[in-house]
Amino acid sequence: MNIVVCVKHIPDPNLPPEMDGTRLKREGVQGVLDPGDEFGVEAGLQLKEQHGGEVTLVSMGPPAAREAITRGLSMGADKGILVSDDALQNADALVTARVLAAAIKRAEFDLVIAGVESTDGYTGTMPATLAEFLDVPMITFVKELENAEGNLKVDRQTADGYHVVEAPLPALITVTAGVNEPRYASFKGIMAAKKKPVDELSLADLGLSGDDVASKQTVKELSPAEERKAGEVVEDDGTAAEKIADFLAEAKVI
């Protein structure tokens, strides 16, 4: 199976976000492979172990996004594609999908895997838009992969349970955090990653122009959200249950 995994490089979510005007600062800040995408990489690696083939990582981002690819390569993926171009600084989900589709279409693929939503952008729509550009069926919110060879069969999370969904390949899936336990990169893996090929592509390499990637989202204004204020905080001295019950009674719910 030829498996493509979308990997996003994001500013380290454990550090406070830095702004560059009205945008999230992405260059010159500590970055990581989106933790949500580790599940995608793991899913790809497991499928390769079962069915053979290759795992290709694809990312769009600044040159530093190569770190995210390297990380996935050290987990065991075979090669990477990084699309990087100054014209992409403002890319929205639509533009990202257009660019990733062009990069993915350069080779034959059976399955594209992405995260349900990114940790920094959390639009959760890039994969659906990508599936449309690739003209393949898509199943989002996959919590279990039952079968992938020939025909895809997965459990898709829903609001009250799950659906079993089938689709022929090629297809696209997004995986939830419940789907697997991502492996750690071994020392050997980290050393091997240095020798694995990473294709760096510009928009021109993909046959796309600046017009194709002009973002249509303009920020008018940024403002802090209204914050709730902290109320009373008490140590539990054995009477906490009574205090809470008083509170519930006052709120007229008991």
Partner: peptide
């Protein structure tokens, strides 16, 4: 899923 696909079809950006 539907909105994401529609965005590709119409070429309009999707605010989420």
């Amino acid at each position: 899923d539907i909105a994401g696909r529609l965005s590709a079809k119409t070429g309009s950006t999707l605010m989420t």
